[in-house]
Structures are given as C-alpha cells and as structure tokens.
Design a protein around this nucleic acid. Sequence first.
DNA 1: AATAAAATTTAGACAAATCTAAAAAATAAA
DNA 2: TTTATTTTTTAGATTTGTCTAAATTTTATT
Lengths: 223, 223
Amino acid sequence: MVPKYSSSRENYVKAIFHLQEIHGTVTTNDVASEMQTRPASVTDMLKKLKAQKLLLYEKYKGFKLNTEGRKVALQIIRKHRLWEFFLVEKLRFGWDEVHEIAEELEHISSKKLIDRLDEFLGFPKTDPHGDPIPDSQGRYTISRQVDLLNLPVNQIAEVSSIGDQSVEILELLNHKHIALGTRLEVKKKFAFDNSLELKIKNQSTVTISEHVAKNVFVKYDDE
Amino acid sequence: MVPKYSSSRENYVKAIFHLQEIHGTVTTNDVASEMQTRPASVTDMLKKLKAQKLLLYEKYKGFKLNTEGRKVALQIIRKHRLWEFFLVEKLRFGWDEVHEIAEELEHISSKKLIDRLDEFLGFPKTDPHGDPIPDSQGRYTISRQVDLLNLPVNQIAEVSSIGDQSVEILELLNHKHIALGTRLEVKKKFAFDNSLELKIKNQSTVTISEHVAKNVFVKYDDE
DNA sequence: AATAAAATTTAGACAAATCTAAAAAATAAA
DNA sequence: TTTATTTTTTAGATTTGTCTAAATTTTATT
C-alpha cells in the first residue's frame, strides 16, 4: 500500500519528461534549474532513478527516461491534469490558482481513485490550460494551441481561448457566432491586410481582421 | 507554501487526539500500538511536537494535546472525513474502501481546497461511517451511532447504516419504509420478545423484531 | 519496603533527500 | 592543441523520521 515512488522521485521524473519533450536530451543543470535545486542533488537522484530502471544514464553523458520512466511520467501528468480539471470545473477555482494544489494531489497513489475521477469528470481530453490529459494507458492526443494567424489553411480546429478579454472583442465574436468550443477552419488568407476568411462548422463563412485573429486561440490534433 | 506539519507529524497528532477522546490521557505505548510503530519512535516525535507547542508533555508522565494541537487534529479529521464523503458520494466508492485513500488525501495542505470541497459537497454533517465532520472552525456535533435495541425510547434518530447486507432484510425494511436517512423514534419496547414499535417520522407506526432491530443502526445528536 | 515487571527514554545507527565545497571530466577558446 | 571555462560528479554533512538495544523511571507484587 506504500507508494511505489516517493513524491520527490516523481517530481524528478516529471521534470525530466518535460525537458526531454522540449530538448530531446536532458542535462543535469537543466533539471536543477527546472526544479530549483542543486546540480549535486540531481546527480544523487539520477543514480537512484537509474537503479530503479527508469532512466538511461551514464555519468557525464546526457540522459533520458526509458519506456518505463515515460510511463511513470505520463501517469503523474494524468493525475495532475485531471485534478486541475476537477478544481476548475467542480470547485470553481481559477486556472491560475490550481497548479500548486495539483502539485500535491498528483502524488496520491490510488489508481482506482484517478480512474473514477476521470469518469466523474466525463473523461476530459484537455486540462484548463488546454494541455492534453493522458488516458489510463498513458495515451494522449497532442493538440497544438495557436492563434488563428498561425492555423494552417483547411485545418479544422476548435476555439480554446481568447487572448484579449475585453467586452468589445467578445461582442464581435459573439456576433460572428465564434465561442469557446466552436469548430472552424481557415479557408483563405489575404496577404494585403492579413485578414482571414473562416468557415464556421455547420454555419456561415465570416471574415475577421488580423487584430481579431491574433486574439483567438485554437487547438487541433497533431498529424 | 510548504506544509506547516509533515504527514508523519499530522498522523501522530491525529492518533493522540483519537486516544485522548477515548481514555482522557494518553501513553507512549498506546500511541505506538495505534500507529504500528515503536515506543522509542513515539518518544522522539513527542519531543518534536512539544517543541512545536502542540503537546503538553513531561517525560515519564502522560501527555495530551493542548488547544493548538486539538485544533490541528480537528482540521485533519475534517479533511479526512470530507474526502471520504466525496469518494462515496461522488466517485461511488464503497465505505469499506475509502479509508486508505483518505489517509493520503487528508495531508493535502490547501485550506481553500477543503473549504471549497465542503461547499461542493453541500456542507455534510457526517461522513459515510456516520462520524461527524468538523466545520472550518473545528466545531462539530457529536452524534452517537447505536442499533435500534439501544436507542432510548422517544429519542428521534436517523437511520445511518444497516448491519446485515442481505437482500432479505433490505426487502423487509423497504416494505416498512425504512431506508438510510429515515428519521424515526422508538415508541415502545416489548420485553417478551424484544420487539419494538417504531414511529416513522411523518409516516406510519410499525413493529420490528429483535433480529431486525439489531441490524439497523441510527445516529442522533448527543445532549 | 524491597524487588520484579512494565513502561519509557536515551544512545547510537540508518535511510532518504538534500546541501556545500572540492575534484574530475567535457567543452570552448585562444 | 594547450589552456580556460563550464558542467558534472564525488566526498562529506545535515535534517527528518525511523529503528534496536540498553538504561532509566514508574508501577506492581511479594
């Protein structure tokens, strides 16, 4: 009934996973600065993670998680993001205040708990920040979040957030039937003023200015 | 943002609180056997708790929590019981499987989290085992859980659990309109066969056998 | 009241996670 | 390709929580 890995070990695995997603390979200093700790402490932990067979590591060379390590990382990320979703959707927290609490909750060990929570929340695909939530097998779909200017033409996407929170832009978007969750695609880009022509799914075709496009963020599945 | 007390310290405080509720005063051996640890470890921790001013302790004498210690204990108990309630009511766990998970969740530090959870759950007064949940100030109403044979005559009480889980007893109780949460009182006790006459609140008067009475547990506010 | 038994505490050790300061290895620069 | 710089690792301490074995204090029993 004792957790397989300590909170500390889990935090290292999570940090390494995060860094190797960005840079491919990971260094001791990277981890130290990511985790606000000392390089010597990182080295100490690397040895333990290697002994536990979560890590490919030879001293003075770079390192990365092996398959088992990635599996562990994805389960922690799953827990973190499901708890964040819970805090925002059920307990009415703002998305800016949930991270710290989820840092604690992600270390609760029960697998059954997290699977039941997932079900209770309706199997959400992304957390309140738009990041994907791995399923109980660790599978997830990478969705990219970009503003409309950077959305490839003919790529179907879903509105995930609005940059500018002014009443004015919301009024404009509302008029054009664009809201959070709306599925749409860019049909044409006009180089002259960077305005866009959008096809709102199952709806009309509308035109928006560069200024608006910059403030509408969408996500779409990669590949 | 670091928790004020470690999980280990919190577990000791909780155990001491539990024991002093039962026996008034607490001994080193009591705590050791309650926590499945060694007396020497208890002594070590007592010193730390005393240094932290949670405990009245002189060596070789007994000890007990001071006001601050009791406050801390009640907040942990509050968290434990609210999480148990959540697990049973929202995530459909059985009450026999929630204790261990709540042992972990009770150490999550955010006060705001627990107050929001309390609100989300509708400010429940008791956990799934019928034990009282302290409010955010640590106040709670003691309710006693007894079987119907031991319920004083004319004492209004609420059905809190059923001992025997057979289909047969549930069918019988269902027929007599007795369910979890039903409010009732004992009007008459027949010494001949220990059968009881009950008044179901806002409903009929019914008679049940000793066998049934033994398996129906109720709770009522003390004093 | 003296002694036996039980409870409690101390002394000293250990594991986990962290740190500082110094040494070693790898990389960059002259 | 030496030398200088940066990165990484080691050596040795520290803190927290735990343990065993021995010593001490309290309580119970003749």
